[in-house]
Structure formats: structure tokens, C-alpha cells
Design a protein around this nucleic acid. Structure first.
Lengths: 344, 344
DNA sequence: CTGAAAGCGCTTACAG
DNA sequence: CTGAAAGCGCTTACAG
């Protein structure tokens, strides 16, 4: 019916079918013009493109997903923990992945897992329903359960963080390198040495930081004084700082922001002025350090960039490329009042 | 071929078709058994359910989305701004929405918009591609552009925050009520009055807080002393605190956490002890207040719960229900060292 | 370069 | 209660 009139009616939902009919070409041609795959005459293609442009037509992505068995969605696995200070990482990482996804025309889906009770049902739903093409895992993967699961499902993934397995595609900031650089700067100004207040030796990241610290000594031809390296220092801060001050050490490096904040607070309470009496840096930056009474020099990781690179790596894998398994992002030193390099 | 053997081969991708054949029923029946829609004999249904269970079969959700024109995805619109202190809200809100979604078997997709340059291309992609069934908008909707757009596309949405339009479904914490409650507690302990350090009068939320403060005075039969209400107080903190201390006021309410932190810092520098010399509260809580030198009593908004309720409202709308347009979540007072109520 | 047709894996009137 | 069949809106061999 309406055989005389093949103009588009407003009420018609626009699909490739109706576009094809309007333009008197086949659906196949329309599809090819849009996707850019398969040969189409330049003229025909332009005609199609112009027409859908004027219509504001966009293909239904669910249909594309079904036909092409590709969703153009990537999942981001995030823990639902409430650990203090975790929010900026969460946010920046997500925004980073999302930016990468956007640039390559993917969307970003959340997969919240509960590390406490190992609840990965949301992740399973995404996998089983084939709702995403791959995953970015943030904040490590305790016990490697998630990566093992994804692998068993032949689902591509990339890890933000470090994993010892050689075949897991991963991206992390180069903690060791950064700590080495910052320590080297401090050594240049501290004949008596640089103390290190560290956390638990059991943590990978703490060990990496220590290695960077150690390396700076090596490079400058000095030797680490193990008497100035304090593991688990948080629980005995008063005593540790006492000893450091007594030894007239000029610089202290703290392995993370929370610890560093405590150090700053303790020093202030004691009336020890920073940086005059002693210089302080943190191997991990945070807003609290930036806005502290005396802003603290710190090693800064660009989490958003980390997320972006993770997204890029994942989409490369999805696209069938084979990116390097181990990837590092440089961290940078943000010099603030608590310690300045000689240049500044 | 293989007519003698209708056992499932491992290599077969399992779909409703193969399940139907295995069970010698129709695809229709399998679909109905799974979805629960449409009548199926109890026995048949159980047989189907048992079988797919044993197979670990899950329907392909892209096919479901296409056939049922429903994606079971909800979008969350988040700004990509870097405003200080914004990360906890971002994270909790997202986790809240995601939890609600999970409970009702939806997934959560990110729609990052840039408020700076009004870039809503990611949102448009989600809408045009029909990739989600609705949206939760966080952090308001400057100028109402996004809600206008979504409405023009007949896309359901819920706002986290306040909007004056009566027909916009929204959920916010009851700032006014909470400020009133906390102010009342302070009034009970301050014969000389409670000072208010506020931000800009131009901001909706600042005015709401003031109204709550004012209401507490009304309820207690007292009158607000406008000389103790300091708008834009952040820029002249020293002077303002000077006057408050000179007047021997016993309590100060700060309208947000950042301002409050500055107040605490200024007081400490001057050697004014909290809560002995003066009591302090914040109308907005944050981790920094909790972990401050002297932990600060504050009005606490459960952002995760806010996100959850937003998700619930949205899914109700998607399901064709008509929830209330205006929804409020109670905020609660977290008493800490800087001010205690008489009970504590 | 272009098209008819099968297929992706579901849902749902419609008819028994 | 159950099924055959059409349809959701695309993609992609296959054959011209």
C-alpha cells in the first residue's frame, strides 16, 4: 500500500531497511557504506552517508552486537571496598578507561566485585550474557581468581597494577624507578643519609619502593644504612622519629601518603619545622599531601593516564593485536614545600 | 546427519535452539520457561530449568535486547571534573547505583560528560545506539540541558540532587532538615548563639543549609543574629573568627568540610582549643573531617544509599511505575570530638 | 561494485 | 499448555 509514495513517513522507525528502500539500494550496501567494510562505489557511499546524516540515523547497536558478535562494551572490574583514600584512584582509573573507550568508540560497563566474600556474580553476568568484549581489572586481582576465570572463558583482560605472571597483560606505574629518582634527589642534599619509613615488607609495592630507594644509593656509590630503614613504622612512629632526629638526618622518605601525613602531624606537634629542620617526601601522592599545612613533595602517579593506557591495551587485544605484556607508566615528582630539588 | 545421535556435542554453541531440540520441545517453550512469561506446564518448565542449569546455559543478552527492545543497562551520567574532594561522591554514588542495578538484574554503564565544554557525545551515543534503558544524572544538571535532551528522546531518567522542576524525578538528602537538627543540638548548649560560616548565597545548597539553621532558631523560640551569619566567609576567615571569639560565642557551624578544615586549622594555629574553648561542626562530612587532628562532628549524607535509591527509582520508571517525583533521604549527625550532644 | 539471502539468538502475537 | 513462524535490525559469506 501507499505504493505511489515511498517518501519516509515520520512515524517509521528508521532502520537500514527503510534507508535502503528510500535510496533504492540494498541493505547490504547501506551497511557497507556505514561500516566502511567491503567495497562500495564512492558515489553510492557518499549518497548513503549524506542521507543518514540528514536523518540523524544511528545503527541500533544491539542488532550490531548480535550480528557481529561484538558489543563494543568493555567492563571495568572494581572492588566495592571502603578503604580510606581509595576514592581518587577509583574515580581517575574509571575516567581514564572511559576516555580510552570513548576515543575508540566503546562504552564502559561497571563490574563491581566484592573482594571480601569473593562475590563475582556481576562479572559472571557480564561474561555469560556476552555483554562486554573484555575487561580491565583494577586494584590487582587477589589470588588471581578473576584472571583465571576470565581466561577460562577466553575473555580478554588487562590488569592495572602488577602481576608476576609473565603472560598477563598489565600496566603499572614504575614505582621503583620513581622512588629511585626521588631518593637520588634527596641524597644529593643529605650527607648523613635519607631515612625510609616503610610499611609492611609483605606487600609487593612496599618492596618495590624499597628497591628504588636502594638503587639510588647504589647509583650514587653510597650504601643503605639498614638502621635507617624502618619497616612497619606506622605503629611506632614516635620512637622512630625520635631516633631519626637524634641522628640528625636531614631527609625522611615515607612510603605512602597516610603514613606521611602522620609523620607531618607528629613533627608539627613536636615543633620540628619542615623543611628547615628536616625534609620530608612521600612515595605516594594524594590531595591531602597537596593541601597539607606544609605541602609535601611526593611521587605522583597519573592514575587517569594509567586507566587510559589500560583501556588502549585491552582494545588492542580485542582488535586482535598483541601488545606487550608488561607496560610501565612513568611517575613524576611533584615538588612542594617539604622538599625542593636543587634546581627549584 | 548424525541422526542417531542427538546428544549435545561439546563444540556446539548452546542456544535455545539446541536446548529445544535436546528436550524435544519448542524454542518458544524454552524461552517461556526461562523468562517466566507466558504459560508453561510446571513439569515441562522444571525439565527445561533443570537442563539449562546442568548446562550452565545463560541466554545471550544482546539477542534478548534486540528481540525485546530492552537492554537491561542503565547509564550513569558523571562529570569528568577534577574538583577537589569530589572523588568520594563519585565513587559512592556509582557504587550505589550499581548495587541497585545488580539487585534488579541490570548493568551500569558510564556516560562521562564534560561540563566544561558541554560535551555530551558519550551520552548521545548511548541514547542513539539504544544501549541503555534510562539514566541516573549525578551532580545536578547545569542549565537542564541534559534532562531536556533526554526528555526529547523519551529516555527515562532520575536526578541525584535537587531540581526545581516539579516533574523531574529526583532524590536528594534533606539538607535543610539535617542542618536544623544539628543546629538545634548546638543551640541547646549555646546561650550566646551559634555562628554560621557559610559559602556563597548564590548556591542552592548554601541557602538550604541556612534555612535549616534558621529553622532551628525558630523552633527554639530564638532569633537568628544576622551578625553571626557570615556569607563568603572563606576569604576572610581570620577576621571572622576574630569576631566570633571576641563575642565569646560557644559554637560555630561551617557549611562545608573544606571550609571547616580551614577553620580548624586556623583555630589550632591560634592555640584556640576545640571543643573546650569553642565547639565546631560541619554541615557536610568527609573523611578529612573524620581523620582530622580533632575529629569534627558533621552532618553525614549516605551517598551510596542515595545512589541506590536513584537506581531503584529509575528502574521503577523503566518498569512503567510512577514513583514520587521528589524524594528525600535523611542525613544523620555523626558526633565526634569537636562537639557532642548532651546525650553523648 | 552490488544484491538476495541466510544468519546472529532471542521474544511474542497468533493459532491451535 | 504448546508450537510454527514472523520479527527485532543488523552483518557477511556467496554469487554475480
Amino acid at each position: 500500500m501507499e505504493s505511489m509514495n515511498n517518501r519516509l513517513r515520520n512515524s517509521d522507525k528508521i532502520t537500514m531497511d527503510v534507508i535502503a528502500k528510500e535510496l533504492e539500494v540494498s541493505k547490504t550496501t547501506v551497511s557497507r557504506a556505514i561500516s566502511g567494510k567491503g567495497r562500495v562505489g564512492a558515489e553510492t557511499r557518499d549518497r548513503v552517508l549524506k542521507y543518514i546524516e540528514s536523518l540523524g540515523y544511528k545503527p541500533n547497536s544491539m542488532a550490531q552486537a548480535l550480528a557481529g558478535s561484538k558489543t563494543y562494551n568493555i567492563g571495568v572490574v572494581v572492588p566495592d571496598t571502603d578503604e580510606r583514600g581509595g576514592a581518587p584512584f577509583f574515580k581517575d582509573c574509571l575516567l581514564g578507561v572511559s576516555r580510552s573507550a570513548a576515543r575508540r568508540d566503546y562504552d564502559t560497563v561497571l563490574a563491581v566485585v566484592s573482594y571480601d566474600n569473593d562475590n563475582i556474580s556481576r562479572l559472571e553476568r557480564l561474561v555469560n550474557g556476552r555483554r562486554v568484549d573484555g575487561f580491565v581489572l583494577t586494584r590487582g586481582d587477589k589470588g588471581g581468581k578473576i584472571s583465571a576465570y576470565l581466561r577460562s572463558q577466553e575473555m580478554p583482560f588487562v590488569l592495572v597494577g602488577s602481576d608476576s605472571r609473565q603472560d598477563v597483560c598489565q600496566i603499572d606505574s614504575d614505582q621503583k624507578d620513581g622512588c629511585c629518582e626521588l631518593t637520588a634527589q634527596m641524597l644529593a642534599q643529605s650527607p648523613k643519609g635519607v631515612a625510609l619509613l616503610a610499611g609492611s615488607k609483605e606487600m609487593d609495592v612496599e618492596r618495590l619502593r624499597y628497591e628504588g630507594y636502594e638503587r639510588a644509593f647504589d647509583l650514587s656509590g653510597r650504601k643503605v644504612d639498614e638502621g635507617l630503614v624502618f619497616w612497619n613504622s606506622e605503629d611506632r612512629l614516635e620512637e622512630v622519629l625520635e631516633r631519626i632526629l637524634a641522628a640528625e638526618i636531614e631527609c625522611v622518605a615515607c612510603s605512602d601518603d597516610l603514613l606521611c601525613l602522620k609523620v607531618m602531624e607528629t613533627l608539627r606537634r613536636r615543633g620540628v619545622s619542615v623543611p628547615e629542620r628536616i625534609k620530608v617526601v612521600s612515595f605516594f601522592d594524594s590531595e591531602d599531601l597537596e593541601y597539607n599545612d606544609v605541602p609535601v613533595t611526593a611521587l605522583h602517579v597519573d592514575t587517569k593516564a594509567l586507566g587510559e593506557r589500560a583501556g588502549d591495551l585491552l582494545i588492542d587485544i580485542i582488535d586482535g593485536k598483541n601488545p606487550e605484556a608488561r607496560n610501565y607508566a612513568k611517575s613524576s615528582v611533584l615538588y612542594r614545600s617539604s622538599f625542593r630539588d636543587n634546581a627549584g
